[in-house]
C-alpha cells in the first residue's frame, strides 16, 4: 500500500470495503474426484465502504460459495479477494469482520451468554467488557430473557438471532450475513432489518445474501444478482425498479354503457373488478372510453419493473434452476 492511509490494525482506510477480481471456485466431484464443478465463475465486483450490498440469487447460485471464499473457509481456484484492502487469507483482519453463516449452528451445550462470551474472548476483551457486550447484544436481538438457556433448547429463529449477535459482537467494520432473514418470523425479520439499517447509520459496510427480494429492495444501496456461478448484474434497486415505466394500470368496475363489451375483452377480471394495462400515451383515451362505458374507475397506477422482474429477466426461469456450471472432466 503506498499512499493509502492505514489505521492501528494496519488496515487501509481508503478503497472499497470488499473487492474480488476473477474469483473462481471449482469443486471436484465423483468417486475419483475427476469431475470438476464450477460453483463460482470469474466474479469481479466491489462493495464500497458504508454501503449495504445485497447479494441476490436462487439457491445454488454461488452466493454462499462467494461468502465462504471471503471468509477464508474455502480457497479460490483462481482470482483474488480483499476485504478492507487486505487479502482474505489474513486472519488478523477478522477483528474487523462479522460473519453470520447460513443456517447457523453453535455449540449446543453452551448458553447464549456463554457462546457470546466465548467468541468475545478471541477479540481480547476483558471480563467486564465481555459481560457488557454480551448483555447489549442479547438485548439487541431480543434474547435478553433467554441468555441463560442452553442453545440445544433454542428454535431455529432464536439460533439465527444468536448468529446475528455473534456477528456484530465486536463492532466490526464489515458485516457479512449469509441469508440473515432465514428462519425468522415477521418480527424477527423486522428486527434484523433494523439492525442492518443501524449498522448502515453507524457507517458499517454490510454484505448480505438473500433470495427475498423485498428485503433487498428495502435495505440495499446496491444489489448484485448472481446465477449459475456468474454475476449477472449490479445496480441500485431504485435505478432498477424506479426509472423505467412499463405503462399504466387502470382498475375499474364495469358499467353497461356504449363500448363496455369491447373494453372488457381487453381487461383481466379480478373478482368483481377488472384490470387493464395501457401505454402511457393511451391513458386519457382509455379513461374516456371507460367513462363512456359507464365504468367506475377505482385506481390508476404506473406499472414499474420490480426487483423480481429484473431478477427473473436476468437469470431466466431455466437458469434459476441451474445450480452450477459443469466445466468438464480433468
Amino acid at each position: 500500500m503506498t499512499a493509502a492511509r492505514r489505521n492501528a490494525n494496519n488496515t487501509p482506510m481508503t478503497g472499497p470495503a470488499i473487492e474480488t477480481e476473477g474469483l473462481t471456485k471449482d469443486y471436484t466431484t465423483g468417486f475419483w474426484l475427476a469431475k470438476k464443478k464450477r460453483s463460482l465463475d470469474n466474479l469481479t465486483m466491489q462493495v464500497e465502504r458504508g454501503e449495504v450490498f445485497g447479494f441476490l440469487g436462487p439457491n445454488g447460485a454461488g452466493k454462499t460459495t462467494t461468502i465462504k471464499l471471503l471468509m477464508g473457509l474455502t480457497f479460490p481456484s483462481a482470482g483474488t479477494a480483499r476485504i478492507l484492502g487486505r487479502p482474505v487469507s489474513d486472519v488478523g483482519m477478522h477483528n474487523e469482520i462479522g460473519y453470520l453463516p447460513e443456517q447457523p449452528y453453535f455449540y449446543d451445550y453452551l448458553t447464549a451468554c456463554e457462546l457470546l462470551d466465548y467468541f468475545a474472548r478471541f477479540h481480547g476483551y476483558g471480563a467486564a467488557e465481555r459481560r457488557e457486550r454480551v448483555e447489549r447484544m442479547l438485548k439487541k436481538v431480543g434474547l435478553e430473557t433467554a441468555g441463560k438457556i442452553q442453545l440445544r433448547k433454542y428454535s431455529k429463529g432464536m439460533l439465527q438471532r444468536v448468529g446475528v449477535a455473534q456477528a456484530i459482537l465486536h463492532d466490526p467494520q464489515v458485516v457479512i450475513l449469509d441469508e440473515p432473514m432465514s428462519g425468522l418470523d415477521p418480527l424477527g425479520r423486522r428486527e434484523v432489518r433494523d439492525i442492518i439499517l443501524e449498522l448502515k447509520r453507524a457507517g458499517r459496510t454490510v454484505l448480505f445474501s438473500t433470495h427475498i427480494l423485498g428485503d433487498a429492495e428495502m435495505l440495499c444501496d446496491r444489489v448484485g444478482v448472481i446465477a449459475g456461478g456468474k454475476l449477472r448484474g449490479v445496480g441500485a434497486p431504485k435505478e432498477i425498479v424506479g426509472v423505467q415505466s412499463h405503462g399504466m394500470e387502470i382498475l375499474f368496475e364495469p358499467g353497461s354503457g356504449a363500448g363496455a363489451a369491447g373494453i372488457l375483452e381487453k381487461a383481466v377480471r379480478m373478482g368483481e373488478r377488472y384490470r387493464i394495462e395501457v401505454a402511457e400515451g393511451e391513458l386519457y383515451g382509455a379513461i374516456e372510453q371507460l367513462r363512456a362505458a359507464g365504468a367506475k374507475i377505482l385506481s390508476v397506477v404506473q406499472v414499474r419493473q420490480t426487483l423480481e422482474d429484473y431478477f427473473l429477466e436476468l437469470i431466466g426461469a431455466e437458469q434459476a434452476r441451474t445450480s452450477a456450471v459443469e466445466v468438464g472432466e480433468k
Binding site: M71, H94, Y99
Partner: peptide, 14 residues
C-alpha cells in the same frame, strides 16, 4: 459436520 467451525474460524483464530 455441524458447521460450528464456520463462526469460530470467522474470528481471528488461525
Amino acid at each position: 459436520e455441524k458447521r460450528t467451525l464456520y463462526a469460530l474460524l470467522a474470528k481471528p483464530v488461525r
